[in-house]
Design a protein around this nucleic acid. Structure first.
Length: 230
DNA sequence: GCGACAG
DNA sequence: ATCTTGTCGC
């Protein structure tokens, strides 16, 4: 009875924000110098749940790490499919406050526009970050009973995910012989540009782009450090 | 009761 | 997301 009201509240918040989504670039591509990857790891302790958010900022051209921050805190919001942003955003925004650099774009582990209300975490977060965002999910989030079409087994091959005539995102074969990843616009960017930037950050040793991939590794390291500490 | 289910 | 070892393959 409590979670139902929470879901109604969350849904109405997202329905308000979605009115302001833009799928157009609000930048020129040569202005993208710093790209941030964001991720969170969780663990339980004393019957409470904790999380650590890591943000890693990379130089677009050299792909070198230029800054990293983390923020650890107790997690109070449960995971509810479709409402990931409400669980993760508090930690993310605190971590962002610690950044000294000002990334031109943020990449998230999860969806953006590829969401039942077009409000996956990448899109939702953009309204607070006021920067372009991209969502990169490792598994498919099925909407309206629509399956994705498997792209060809070639690097860069993709298929658009179309629901009732509208492109929500795409299944992208970031490398040959790997499962596809699911790229969608967060906000203030178009899908072709989001795909191009994602592919730019693909290295031969992973199907995931550098920013989210290394942010994920960093969260695991940060959690390990914390647990050694306790 | 059964299947779905981003992270 | 997390719980977890070995193992097949490049």
């Amino acid at each position: 009875m409590e979670v139902e009201k929470m879901i109604l509240n969350y849904t109405s918040q997202q329905n308000e924000l979605r009115k302001r989504i833009s799928l157009q670039n609000n930048f020129s591509e040569d202005q993208i110098k710093l790209v941030a990857g964001v991720d969170i790891a969780y663990w339980g302790e004393n019957n409470k749940e904790y999380g650590v958010c890591c943000i890693q900022v990379f130089d677009f051209c050299s792909k070198k790490l230029v800054e990293q921050v983390d923020y650890m805190d107790e997690i109070t919001t449960p995971y509810i499919s479709g409402f990931l942003a409400f669980r993760e955003l508090p930690l993310i925004l605190e971590a962002v406050k610690k950044l000294k650099t000002n990334p031109n774009l943020y990449m998230f582990d999860g969806n953006g526009y590829l969401h039942k209300r077009n409000m996956g975490i990448a899109t939702h977060a953009s309204f607070y970050l006021e920067k372009p965002t991209i969502g990169v999910a490792k598994t498919y989030y099925k909407i309206e009973n629509t399956d994705f079409i498997m792209p060809e087994n070639r690097t860069g091959a993709f298929t658009d995910i179309v629901i009732e005539g509208e492109v929500y995102g795409r299944a992208l074969r970031s490398r040959r012989d790997v499962k596809p990843i699911f790229v969608s616009c967060g906000n203030e960017i178009d899908l072709d540009t989001a795909t191009k930037i994602t592919m730019h950050f693909i290295e031969k040793d992973s199907r995931l782009p550098i920013p989210t991939r290394y942010a994920d590794l960093a969260t695991h390291q940060a959690r390990k450090l914390h647990q050694d500490d306790v």
